[in-house]
Amino acid sequence: MKDPQDDRAQIVENYADMVWRIALSRTRREEAAEEVVQEVFLSLFQKERTFNEEEHLKAWLIRTTLICCKHYLTASFRNATISLDEVGDLPAMSEGQSTVYEALLSLPAKYRIPLQLYYIEEMDSDACAKAMGLRPGTFRVRLNRGRNLLRELLKGEGIDV
């Protein structure tokens, strides 16, 4: 008999990083990201949800992550002094990449998440829009504005894109 933990392990292996990255990007706190990741997977495993396709699972995880992040940020309203300094040590990346990632994190969430999904998670814009519950056109507008903001920030750091 197949051990349910094997299924869990597979899902965690496939998606925990993605959920963590999105949560980190949204909350900008590593601790918060870990809490959100647990909330999301708890919700997934507790209700023994089934998905017809892998893409459905992925979309559900992204959407649930964003909802959990929103709840987290709302709940921690009083204590939420979120600055980039609190992100803690970023994972080892090249200097250039660290700059880019820090610039990304400094953007408003409205633009940060679209960029995160599009560039880091490498999803196409329609899938991103669906996961975020936005119209494709709205998503593209945010993506474009986010790009422009990011370019400006990177320009200030001497990275011309």
Binding site: A16, D17, V19, W20, R21, L24, A33, E34, V37, P91, A92, M93, G96, Q97, V100, Y101, Y119, I120, E121, E122, R147, L150, R151, L154, I159, V161
Partner: peptide, 15 residues
């Protein structure tokens, strides 16, 4: 060109 800046970042941001 922004895509190049994010290249490989996914693998380095892990839980």
């Amino acid at each position: 060109p922004l895509r190049a800046q994010f290249q490989g970042m996914k693998g380095k941001l892990c839980a």
